[in-house]
């Protein structure tokens, strides 16, 4: 895990954005990562081992990929509550297709396509109807979950395809599960998209001032749809990899993603108000949530207590970002 945190990709955005600004804003989340690692290393014996870090990386892979797409949506000032449900539905579709056709690893692009279509649905309803995104995606959350649970008949469906499983649990780089490697690649691409493409720029502009963007002729509606489609695509990809890692798709797949993805994005420092932050920061947020999950498990904290802690962390992160914002204005 330390390898991930210090991987060269980590410093890449620093070259593209003004160095000073980024360092100050990243300081707090990085400090939290350090404190968490130190705390769990002292309080548990099994935390600071290569084996455990490898486990954390495996657990965090899906969360990272799903969060990246959702980050663009939040950057744009909207919210996608349906990512967990998309993961569940695409996961169910993935095992079904695998068991029916045996196309093996080729199910991965298909899963991404499924996800993108679901995202496209979200985005179209949102952008064309003008209903708030949280309402639209809350509704689609229920719809997607319902379809998925019917597909699964409420049971976990297994599959056996070694090549496909290897996509997630194999280790191209020793001790780094492939699912985490995929996550890092997706992260690199996302950072590039955010900082170096028209799509990325429009996300910042729409989030910072939708009316300004519209007045200047930016096709706001179209790009809103694109953002939700991208969010769905990455959720679909994450779903396929999660299924590959677990060897099955069950009714509880993706159920913790709603809270965890929001928590990771906000803790990383992307503002829910839109217009500031970005996928480069989401990596740190995902680290914080993954370490917290893993460490609390090792400490033997009950999952109910964990829910309480994570909820508090999200609220604290939003409060902290507001304080930061106020300071920025005062300065």
């Amino acid at each position: 895990m330390t390898d991930i945190a210090r991987s060269p990709g980590f410093s890449r955005p620093r070259l593209q954005l003004p160095a000073l600004e980024l360092d100050v804003k990243l300081l707090l989340p990085l400090l939290v990562v350090a404190v968490l690692i130190a705390f769990f290393s002292v309080t548990t014996e099994s935390f600071a081992t290569l084996r455990n870090f490898s486990t954390i990386a495996g657990q965090a892979g899906t969360l990272l990929i799903v969060c990246l797409g959702a980050t663009f949506v939040i950057l744009m000032g909207s919210i996608d509550l349906s990512v967990g449900a998309i993961v569940l539905l695409v996961g169910a579709l993935t095992v079904t297709v695998l068991n029916l056709t045996g196309i093996g690893v080729w199910v991965l692009p298909l899963a991404a396509l499924f996800g993108a279509v679901l995202g496209l649905l979200n985005g179209s309803v949102y952008a064309l109807s003008g209903i708030q995104s949280f309402v639209v995606t809350l509704g689609s959350l229920s719809i997607f979950s319902g379809v998925a649970l019917q597909l699964l008949q409420g049971r976990a469906i297994q599959f056996s395809d070694a090549a496909f499983e290897n996509l997630a649990i194999g280790q191209l780089i020793p001790s780094l599960p492939n699912i985490a490697l995929c996550g890092l690649v997706a992260w690199g691409v996302s950072v590039l998209i955010a900082s170096r493409t028209r799509f990325g720029r429009y996300m910042y502009l729409i989030g910072g001032g939708e009316q300004v963007a519209r007045t200047a002729g930016v096709p706001v509606r179209r790009y809103k749809i694109y953002a939700f489609a991208l969010s769905g695509l990455l959720a679909g990809l994450g779903a396929a990899l999660a299924v590959a890692r677990l060897g099955a798709a069950g009714p509880s797949l993706g159920s913790d993603l709603l809270l965890n993805s929001l928590a990771a994005i906000v803790v990383g420092g992307t503002s829910l108000a839109g217009g500031s932050g970005g996928p480069h920061r989401t990596l740190i947020g995902v680290l914080i949530i993954a370490i917290l999950d893993n460490g609390l498990n090792l400490l033997g904290v009950s999952s109910y207590t964990q829910m309480i802690i994570k909820g508090a962390v999200v609220i604290a992160a939003v409060v902290a970002s507001r304080v930061e914002l106020r300071n920025a204005v005062v300065k």
Binding site: R201, Y204, L205, G208, G209, V212, A213, T215, G275
Partner: peptide
């Protein structure tokens, strides 16, 4: 409200 996004960079 319509002309500029104050929080974002001049070049943007």
């Amino acid at each position: 409200v319509e002309g500029i996004i104050p929080s974002q960079k001049l070049s943007w």
